[in-house]
Amino acid sequence: MIQRRQLLAAGACVLGAPALVRAQGYKGEYRLSLVVGPGTTWYTAAENFAQLVRERTAGRINMRLYPAASLVQGAQDRELAAMRQGTIDVLVGTTVNWAGTVKDFTTFLLPYLMPDTKAVDAVLASDALNKDFYDIIRRAGAEPLASGEYGNIQLLNAKRRIAKPADVAGLKIRTVATPLQQDVMNALKANPTTMSWADAQAALASGAVDGLTLTLEQALAYKVATLGQKQVTRWNVFNELIHFLVAGPVFKTWTPEDQQLVRAAAKDAAVELTRQVRKPVDDTLKQQGFEVYSPSAEEIAQWKAAVHPVYDKWKASLNTGLIGKIEQAVAQAK
C-alpha cells in the first residue's frame, strides 16, 4: 500500500508540473520575432538562445522563432509596438529598427561611433550600455537581457567600385527605414530608398535599385552577388549591436530562478554571436564572386569627414549624455 501511494504521489508531481506552470502565468509558447531568416548569424543566435532557454528551464519556457518580421507582416519597424500590444513576446534585433517608436534607439547607428572591435568590446562592457541604454529599453516596455555585435554594415552596389564619398553620388541605395541612415546617404549625394527585403531583392535584380547596405555575412547568406551586387566597400561607417529583449510584462510572470536562467542563456548566445560575426569571410566572398575594396586611411578620413555633419546633427537631437559616455568608453579603448 505504501509503495502504491508513493507511485501515485510521484505521478501526480509529474502530471501536475504543466498545470503549475500555467498557474504561474507561463505560456505554452513565446513568440520570438526577428527580421532575418535562416542562414545568418543573427538567426542562428536567436535559435541558439531559444534552445538554451528551453534546455535550462527544463521546457518551462519554449520560444518559437518568427523570422522575416512575419508577426508584423515584414514591417520590421513595427516590432516594438507589437511587443507592447502583446503580439510579440521576445525580440532579438537591432534597436534602430524600433527607433520610430523610441528615438534614442538610433544611438548605435551614429556613423563611426564604434569603428573597430576594440570599440565594440568597450561598449559591450560599459555602464553606458548595460545601465544607461538598458534603462531606456526598460522605459520602452522591454527587459534587456544581453547584447552582442551585429557587425559592420558595408556598402554594396552593382555599378562600380566605390573608394571615396564622391563615388556614391547619384546611386540609388536601399536603406533601412531610419532617417539617420537616409541622412548619411543624402550627405553623400546618393538617393536613399526604403523598401522591404522582399521588394528590395526584385528591385536589385532588375536594376531599379543600384545598391544596398548589409553586413558581409548577410550578403553571403542572401547571395546578393546573384542580384548583381558584387562591388563591396569596407567603409565601416555603421556597426550596430543586436539585443536580446523580453516584453516587460512577460518577464515578470517568470520566477526569479527562470529569469536568471533566461538572462544567462541570452548572455551566452550574445557572446557566441559576437564570435561568429568576427570570423573572416574574405575567401567565401571571393568564391561567391564579390569584389571587395578596402579604402585607404586617407579615403577613410574622407568618409568620416563627409558624414561628420550627420553625426553632429543626430547627437544633438538624441541623448547627448548617453552618447558622451559611449564616446568616452571608445576613447579609453583606443
Rank of each mutant, 00 (worst) to 15 (best):
M1V: 14
I2R: 13
A12C: 10
R22S: 14
Q24L: 11
Y26V: 06
R31W: 12
S33G: 11
L34P: 02
V35K: 01
G37K: 02
G39P: 07
G39A: 11
W42H: 05
T44S: 15
E47L: 11
E47G: 07
F49G: 09
Q51T: 14
L52R: 13
V53Q: 09
E55Q: 15
T57N: 11
R60G: 12
R60E: 15
M63A: 11
L65E: 03
Y66A: 13
P67I: 00
S70L: 04
Q73V: 11
A75F: 07
Q76K: 08
A81Q: 14
R84A: 10
I88S: 04
D89E: 13
V90D: 02
L91I: 04
T94V: 11
T95L: 05
T95W: 01
T101I: 06
V102T: 11
V102H: 08
K103R: 15
T107Q: 01
L110D: 03
Y112W: 08
A122C: 09
A128P: 05
L129N: 00
N130W: 00
Y134T: 04
I137Q: 02
R139M: 09
G141L: 04
L145G: 06
S147F: 00
S147C: 04
G151I: 01
I153W: 01
A158R: 04
I162H: 04
P165E: 12
G170W: 04
I173A: 06
R174F: 07
T175P: 06
T175F: 06
T175W: 09
T178A: 08
P179E: 07
M185L: 12
K189D: 14
N191V: 14
T194Y: 08
A198E: 12
D199A: 15
A200P: 10
G207H: 05
V209I: 13
D210G: 10
T215C: 01
L216R: 00
Q218N: 14
L220G: 13
Y222L: 15
G228M: 05
G228C: 11
V232Y: 00
T233D: 08
W235D: 14
F238K: 01
N239H: 03
I242E: 00
F244L: 09
V246L: 05
W254K: 04
W254Y: 15
E257Q: 14
Q260D: 13
V262T: 10
V262N: 08
A265R: 09
A265Y: 08
D268G: 15
A270T: 03
V271N: 10
Q276V: 02
V277L: 00
D282A: 13
D283M: 00
L285C: 11
K286C: 05
Q287P: 06
G289K: 02
E291S: 13
S296F: 06
A301P: 08
K304E: 15
V307W: 03
V310K: 00
W314N: 09
T320C: 06
G321I: 07
I323V: 03
E327T: 06
Q328K: 03
Q332R: 14
Q332H: 12
